[in-house]
Design a protein around this nucleic acid. Structure first.
Lengths: 188, 188
DNA sequence: GTCTATAAGATGATAGAC
DNA sequence: GTCTATCATCTTATAGAC
């Protein structure tokens, strides 16, 4: 793993834990084991670094979604796997979604980073809406509203739950919400 | 309004917009119209100020909940009024809940502030759970899960939606989610 | 690519005059 | 209660040697 990749990984990790305003080039230098000034060789400004972290995060997440699409046999299992992405981040890594951290610091971000965050949420909603539509079409799901509206609710609930779970020191709460979501779409 | 109250109001407003790490004593001094150093006369440290803001916010919110309890005639109207608290903050004031901002910056906060945030979420959940229990008992609501689990979902969805709505510049999304929640508890 | 040295500004906080 | 002046420290960023 080269220095550039280490910097991206460390920045991503720190934003997910402490936020964009919560880490500095000094923190980054400590973690990666180089000097502050050397970071500028790889990323000329903090905004550049943040932008690349956001781009990479979005790409990785979309790859995970494609993997779920091709790897699971039905819509219910796909929804379970989607929720598992969030639970894994929180329960195993004790981190929250990068983009909900960036959303909270929205005012401090450059336009380019803001656009990445916006695109991340949009793509998640589109993916979820498509999943709900398919599940409904195939008679697997019974929805309380349109696929698009259900997608908005599910994304909001998962993102909000990560932050609340972390601040209440109660990681089981994401599990509660997962169960709620799954049973709410289950064919009755 | 005395200086102390102005400082509390400005700090609260700025945290809701930019986060705890996103505002400084200089910003505060500019808004209130005194010098940086004078702030320390009222709040010796930023952590003290943050703590008092969180305490006051929680008290004000709980007062609003008591007002809903005594002012609305049935459980459905109480739930509508609760959701309206969040919508008003976002749509009229273009701010998000103070405590979800503080939750995102959890690692940067003193223990006292963390405890206030935790208590805020807990009290909201207890209040909502009680509301769902009553609505269910009186045959007004049909719940998909226990009152407590439903409370967790509703709080998470509203808090998450505020952040996502703001970052996507789409304030209507809170309305979508409100409709979803209301129709999900409606007696069928 | 990484380093040392350094800049220019912001940060929270203190001392002491008025 | 508010001010000026000052502090130590942290922030992102640059210049130039190796």
């Amino acid at each position: 793993m080269d220095t550039r990749s280490k910097l991206l990984a460390s920045a991503r990790d720190q934003i997910q834990r402490k936020g964009y305003n919560g880490f500095s080039y000094a923190d980054l230098a400590d973690e990666v084991g180089i000097r502050k000034a050397s970071i500028h060789h790889h990323f000329s400004t903090k905004a550049d670094l943040g932008r690349e972290v956001a781009i990479q995060y979005r790409q990785d997440f979309m790859a995970a979604l494609r993997s779920i699409e091709s790897g699971k046999s039905n819509s219910f299992k796909k929804l379970e796997a989607y929720i598992q992405l969030f639970r894994h981040t929180l329960e195993k890594d004790h981190k929250v979604c990068l983009c909900i951290m960036l959303a909270a610091e929205h005012e401090a971000l450059s336009d380019k980073i803001k656009n990445e965050v916006k695109a991340f949420f949009k793509e998640n909603e589109v993916w979820l809406a498509q999943l709900f539509f398919e599940g409904q079409s195939e008679g697997e799901f019974t929805l309380m509203s349109t696929p698009a509206e259900t997608a908005k609710l599910v994304l909001s609930a998962l993102e909000g739950a990560m932050l609340i779970a972390e601040s209440m020191d109660d990681l089981t709460r994401l599990e509660s919400i997962s169960q709620w979501i799954l049973s709410s779409v289950k064919k009755t």
